[in-house]
Design a binder for these strands. Structure first.
Lengths: 329, 329
DNA sequence: TCTATTGGTTGGAGCGCTCTAACGATGTAA
DNA sequence: TTACATCGTTAGAGCGCTCCAACCAATAGA
């Protein structure tokens, strides 16, 4: 496992170590003849530059640190996918950590990432206090995804949850619905904006809002529907797809047909919603785009192109499928 | 962004750089008095060791390279989660890359990971030829997940797909089924073993096999069912959960009830299967365990505890839910 | 002819750390 | 007393690389 160094390549090619370095970095001021000799020697020895030594010597880093609660959650996985795409295009690599939504563990994860002196840090929905984020931002550019911040040193990328729900309500209203209920996400992430968006949209249409307490699970969706059954609305806007699927099965159990008797809209456009069997009308968050924009924001700071913070608020879009239709007369 | 070095801490604490190094590494042969002084100085300066410099100087690495096709796939995301857990416990960090199931891109990803001189490499279902893997294994310990290998230098962690399907078939037979069909996964990963497992299990029970060509999607599951409708079996073993859900909806459209008329078993135990609305009997792969075992295998090699390859073949388990029952008389 | 200029090449310092060998101080045994 | 460990500490070399200043032709300009 002992790998050749620049020195070895230089000796074999009959040049200096500095020249090998120039070739490896693709410098134009090297004669074709020497370049070929170096490349040949490197090839023969199976040499490839040592990223850490390079980074140490050049005092630059091509690593982006990423902290995520857990990869288990497809939302984060897709954001990381987006980060990875941009990073790869620009010759950066990702070092990934999990924080598990526990402040102490997140702090350790942050410290670990910073010990690599990354070019930047992307924190996906961190739960640590703002002070910890400010401290991290003093060491490297930071971008926050799915969490807002007032810190001038950090950029943010968020979903416009209010707008997403507004899209859903507008869609239902345009179909002719007037009695539209919302099953909310309780204290879950983004549940607040979604609830506010619902209330605002209903008010904008001059309709009476009706919010049922819920959470981000199918069980909660089913429970909420049983609560609504005393006086069923013609449409339900759920806090997310899982909740919506629970609502649909509870409606079916009660003998109500979707969308003939009740229309249902979800949120998140998970793979679940796309299943033909479910075919759920839902609000799509451009998750991959979150990651891409986060990476771009970091790289802009890395390149020194920008000092002022940027606040991305991404527009969700409505994906109309088979669970919404006009209300029954 | 210019951070203090050991030299700064040493100067402030009035000791040598070497002593600071000893304190940072938790050496016992440092007087309590000096240790406290160093720790205090480090704290005041906000010092934390530079992982890359440390790695370069000590010629050791606390990085594990992970190559994954895409994080999008929840299977990989959970394996990475398992890897991360073990890595974190042992003070290792993960550097993650995507290969996109394209040999050329995988090769680049591999090279990139190796440039960090990681302590080990975990490759999740790579598609590059064995020669590339052997080449990588010459540079660092390699563990393959969801791909087998004969190379003595690499460890492997795989699911026993044959056994998983056997579990499903045995379950159905014990319920009284005899006409059991299998919708296969075509050329998909693990589709072969699953198909073989089905054929072997049917043979073991003296039953006549019936395989319908499919793939890992709900659309394919629905299509396969329509093909089976001419002479419906009493049970279907699908190649995965998505396929099973497609099968279920096609059965419903044909007026057949699950499990009263036809039982259905999936594979993978995705979050989908757990939904009450779906409540799919399925085969569970211990995905997190895949990652944990892969990390353990690497760390054993890193510590020089083992030279011979290890071949983990994990036992899947059956999760019985609501889509299976005795056949109709 | 002499001085600039240019392009390719090189030695050497240094990035922030670890590790080895050696140091002085103290205690212990002969 | 001398010799010898033992303990805490330190100087210095070196990990594999980048970067700067210097260098050496070779060519161009005066």
């Amino acid at each position: 496992m002992v790998r050749p160094t620049m020195e070895d390549v230089a000796a074999r090619a009959g040049v200096s170590r500095a020249l090998v370095s120039l070739v490896m970095r693709g410098s134009p001021r090297v004669s074709e003849q020497r370049r070929a000799a170096v490349l040949k020697a490197a090839e023969e020895l199976g040499y490839s530059p040592h990223a850490m030594a390079r980074s140490l010597a050049s005092r630059t880093s091509h690593l982006l640190g990423v902290m995520v609660s857990d990869l288990h959650n497809p939302f984060f996985a897709e954001v990381v996918d987006g980060l990875d795409e941009v990073a790869r295009e620009r010759g950066f690599d990702l070092i990934v950590n999990t924080g598990g939504r526990e402040p102490a563990r997140e702090r350790r994860a942050l410290a670990s990432l910073l010990s690599f002196r990354p070019a930047g840090l992307a924190l996906l929905s961190p739960v640590v206090p703002s002070a910890d984020i400010a401290r991290a931002a003093a060491q490297a550019p930071v971008v926050l995804v799915a969490r807002s911040s007032r810190l001038a040193a950090v950029d943010t990328v968020n979903d416009d949850g209010e707008r997403g729900i507004t899209l859903a309500v507008d869609h239902l209203v345009s179909l002719g619905h007037r009695r539209i209920a919302h099953v909310d996400g309780g204290g879950g992430a983004q549940a607040g904006p979604r609830r506010r968006g619902y209330l605002a949209a209903m008010a904008a249409h001059g309709l009476v809002p009706r919010v049922v307490a819920g959470e981000y699970t199918d069980v909660a969706g089913a429970r909420a529907v049983r609560e609504l059954l005393a006086d069923p609305p013609t449409a339900i806007v759920s806090c997310n797809d899982f909740n919506a699927v629970g609502a649909i099965s509870a409606l079916a159990e009660a003998g109500l047909r979707v969308p003939r008797d009740v229309s249902v809209v979800g949120y998140d456009n998970t793979s679940l919603a796309a299943l033909r069997h479910v075919s759920l009308t839902t609000v799509d968050q451009p998750r991959n785009e979150f990651g891409r924009l986060a990476a771009e924001a970091l790289l802009q700071r890395v390149r020194g192109e920008r000092q002022e913070p940027v606040r991305h608020l991404l527009r969700p879009s409505l994906v109309v499928r088979a669970t919404t239709g006009p209300p029954r007369r």
